[in-house]
Computed example of a mutant assay.
Amino acid sequence: MWANRAFYDDGEWVTWSEIEEQVRCKEWGAKYPNAKRSLIPYFEELLSLAEQYHWETGFHLNLYGDIGELFAAITYGITLNKNYAQGSDGRLGKDFVEVKTITPFKKNDVVTVKTSGNFNKLLVVRINEDFEVSSKLVDRKDLPKPSGGIFRVAWGQIPVTGESS
Rank of each mutant, 00 (worst) to 15 (best):
W2S: 09
W2E: 04
A3W: 11
N4P: 04
N4V: 01
N4K: 15
A6W: 14
F7P: 08
Y8I: 13
D9C: 10
D9Y: 13
D10Y: 13
D10I: 06
D10G: 09
G11K: 08
E12D: 11
E12A: 14
V14E: 06
E18P: 04
E20K: 15
E20S: 12
E20Q: 14
Q22M: 11
R24C: 05
C25H: 07
K26R: 09
E27F: 12
E27D: 09
A30C: 10
K31Q: 08
K31G: 05
N34K: 12
N34P: 00
N34V: 04
A35Y: 09
K36I: 12
R37L: 15
S38L: 15
S38W: 14
S38A: 15
L39I: 12
Y42N: 12
F43I: 01
L46M: 15
S48Y: 13
L49Y: 07
L49E: 13
L49C: 12
A50Q: 06
H54K: 07
H54E: 06
W55P: 00
T57G: 05
T57Q: 11
T57V: 10
H60G: 02
L61V: 11
Y64R: 12
Y64H: 15
G65Y: 04
D66T: 03
I67C: 00
I67Y: 00
G68R: 03
L70N: 05
A73K: 03
A73Y: 01
T75R: 01
Y84A: 08
Y84H: 09
A85K: 15
G87C: 12
D89C: 12
G90K: 05
K94C: 01
D95G: 09
F96S: 02
F96C: 08
T101I: 04
T103C: 11
K106V: 11
K107V: 13
N108K: 08
D109K: 01
T115C: 14
S116W: 10
S116P: 04
G117V: 02
N120H: 12
L122S: 10
L123P: 02
V125W: 04
V125R: 01
R126C: 03
N128A: 05
N128H: 10
E129K: 15
D130C: 04
D130K: 11
D130R: 08
F131C: 13
E132L: 13
S134L: 04
S135L: 02
S135Q: 01
K136D: 14
K136Y: 12
L137Y: 02
R140W: 15
R140K: 12
R140T: 14
R140M: 08
R140Y: 14
K141V: 15
D142Y: 01
D142S: 13
K145C: 08
K145P: 00
P146M: 05
G149P: 04
V153K: 07
V153G: 09
V153F: 07
V153M: 11
A154P: 01
W155H: 12
W155P: 06
Q157D: 15
I158G: 01
I158V: 09
P159T: 05
T161R: 02
S165C: 06
